[in-house]
Design a binder for these strands. Structure first.
Lengths: 149, 149
DNA sequence: ATTAATGCAAACGGTTTGCACTACT
DNA sequence: AGTAGTGCAAACCGTTTGCATTAAT
């Protein structure tokens, strides 16, 4: 059983994966890929727009959002929704995970697959429901905030 | 151990709970309460605005949203976020529950506390995290859509 | 030469805000 | 009379769209 490809080829490969499909490699896309490559975990579209602007002040939001759509079709990123209700992009290939969000301090932590295993399995057993963990955000109070009550 | 109060007093009591705090009972609030009283589970703010409009076409969105804030402070409703990322209000006193959302057919089901018990407890044990189940939406594929793959 | 992608500006949808006016207490 | 609440209109924010222009292939 082969291991998943490492990060590097994934990002460098995007250019070719685009071209294979008759899509194009543009400076704007290069910048977004560059930003995504150094992003760990999850970001909102708006955050990505900002980070791209840090690289190129001329960055146009619609271009970023359109490219994000393309990248999602390519399977390079996926999107879900955070506790704030904002669209949130997950950068691959990370292990599939959900998020914990503290409604008091606003902190965010990753919820790894093993931790959610029971839930995922029991929902599958009882309801035939296939959980998409990367799309799940669990809200509540983190240890520190719970203690402060 | 006394049982929780029944629905009826909760809703009729709102008027008095407001007045106790020096807040007021207005026709607009009466309509919203009426709409909420016949709502089971969860609704978005926009949906509530529409349902109020069905009762009184003159309903103004800002009034509804402001009243929702007040009602949340009163503890009559709570809000979370659905799979679409929209703000979502949970009407009390229902049993605390989260939601399952099928990303294919758009269906929604309630995730009852017992089903999430393992997750809730293990997060508390391992991280000291106190899950607010009513704020949780689990996305994935329902049985029917999963079968259709 | 094609036609995908960009830049721009305008629209969107749900929600929030400021402010003068209304009406509940 | 006092002040909470309303109606209205405008602003907001992240995101999406239409369209003429640009540039990757």
């Amino acid at each position: 059983m082969p291991t998943a490809p490492t990060n590097q080829p994934l990002w460098t490969g995007v250019r070719d994966r685009l071209r294979e499909r008759g899509l194009r490699w543009t400076p704007q896309r290069r910048i977004l890929i560059e930003v995504l490559a150094r992003t760990d975990g999850h970001v909102t579209g708006a955050e990505l727009v900002e980070r791209c602007r840090a690289v190129d002040a001329e960055t146009i939001p619609s271009t970023v959002y359109r490219t994000l759509d393309v990248l999602e079709e390519l399977g390079v990123i996926r999107h879900g929704h955070g506790a704030n209700g904002r669209e949130e992009f997950h950068v691959l290939p990370e292990t599939e995970h959900g998020h914990l969000h503290c409604s008091s301090c606003g902190g965010t932590w990753e919820l790894e697959a093993p931790e959610a295993k029971d839930l995922v399995e029991s929902l599958h057993r009882s309801r035939g429901f296939r959980v998409d963990l990367s799309h799940v955000t669990v809200s509540g109070l983190c240890r520190a905030c719970a203690a402060r009550d």
